[in-house]
Structure formats: C-alpha cells, structure tokens
Simulated scan of single mutants.
Amino acid sequence: MNAELDEWLSHAKTPETRARIRRWARWARFGMVLVIVSVWLVALLVLSVIVIDIADIAFFDSVPWLGWVLLGVLVGLIVGAGGLILLADGRRIKAMYADGRVSVGVITQVTRVEPADPEMVGVSYDLTITATTPGTGEIRRVVNHSNALEIGQRIRFRHNTLDPENQYDALFVDAVAEQDGARQ
C-alpha cells in the first residue's frame, strides 16, 4: 500500500492535500488494525469459554452475563472499525483527487460488474469515458458507478494525469445535464 500511497502523494499539488491523503490513509489502516485485533479477541473469547466449559471452571456460573457483554463490545468494535474504514477510505479517495483536473466526457461503454461473492447484493457498473483535453487530445478513463448510465451521456469526472493510458485515474463527479453540456 505504501507504493500506491506514494504515487497518489506525488499527484497532490499542495501540502494540505498530501496531509489529508496521509491522514485518511492512517485512519483506514487504524480501522483495519482494530478489525483484526477485535476478530482475534472474539476468537480468543470463544476459545476461552469453550476451555472454561470443558474444565468446568465455575467463574462464568457466578457471572454468566460477562461473556455476552464482552462479545457484544467486541462485535460493536468490529462494526465501528468497519464503519471507520469505509469513512476513511471514501475521504482518502476524495482527497486523492482534490487537486485533479475536472473534465467532461462521453460514456462510450457500460460494463456490468457482478459482485465477487454471489451472496452479496449490489451490482456496479464500469463506465468507459472518452474526453478531449486541451493540449493532449483524447483520453479514456474508467469509473465505477452504482447506477448504469447510458452510452452517449456526458459526465463530469476528476483525474490527476493527462496520460491517455492511465485508464483508472478517474473519480466520478456527476452527470452533466444537457443545458450544462451546451455551455461547455
């Protein structure tokens, strides 16, 4: 992850943006550590309850609710850390494109992306966009979006480079209404 983080930091133009990227990356990493530690503690708690039950130790007989309270706290910690990861990752991604260029392009292809696990709900779409930028000509980018937009629709997106080969250097901003597109 450090190589990827260093690459995004190199695209940031201001010290404030680099600091925001680092800060949200640290929060996401902290959330991941919390999840891992909490999962290990849940496993340790379950294992200790099994050992206590097999050894017939009377501690949990006198305090039967303690195990459930600990389990509840740990599950709450896992859920909270997962929320922290989602929040921090979303903010990190926005910070990575904060200094980027805004372009308007046309959707040339829509590809449905099925979830990796068939049990998961939620389909997303990879939108291939072609845009003309001053000085470099045409660039192609791919953005992932939760809704299938139509081919030919204009969208606004952020990107950090003008490299025509860097297809995944894009962050979806919004769809451009026809009256907005006429002004551009």
Rank of each mutant, 00 (worst) to 15 (best):
N2F: 09
A3D: 15
E4F: 02
E4W: 10
L5W: 03
D6R: 02
E7Y: 05
S10P: 03
S10G: 10
S10V: 05
A12C: 13
E16C: 08
T17Y: 04
R18Y: 04
R22Y: 04
R23S: 15
A25Q: 12
F30E: 15
V33M: 13
V33D: 14
L34I: 10
L34W: 11
V37C: 11
V37Y: 02
V39C: 13
V39D: 07
V42D: 12
V42F: 05
L45E: 10
L47K: 06
I50L: 06
W65Y: 15
V69A: 14
L71Y: 10
L77H: 02
V79H: 04
A81M: 12
L84V: 15
L84K: 09
I85P: 12
L87G: 12
G90H: 12
R101G: 08
R101N: 13
V102P: 03
V102I: 14
V104H: 03
G105V: 02
V106A: 08
T108A: 00
Q109T: 09
T111K: 05
T111R: 02
D117Q: 03
V121H: 10
V121A: 14
V123M: 06
S124F: 03
Y125I: 05
D126V: 06
I129T: 01
T132A: 07
T132Y: 01
P134Y: 00
G135A: 03
T136N: 09
I139Y: 00
R140H: 06
V142W: 03
V143M: 01
H145M: 01
N147W: 04
G152V: 07
R154T: 12
R158C: 11
H159Y: 08
N160H: 02
T161V: 08
V176D: 07
A177I: 01
D180Y: 00
G181N: 09
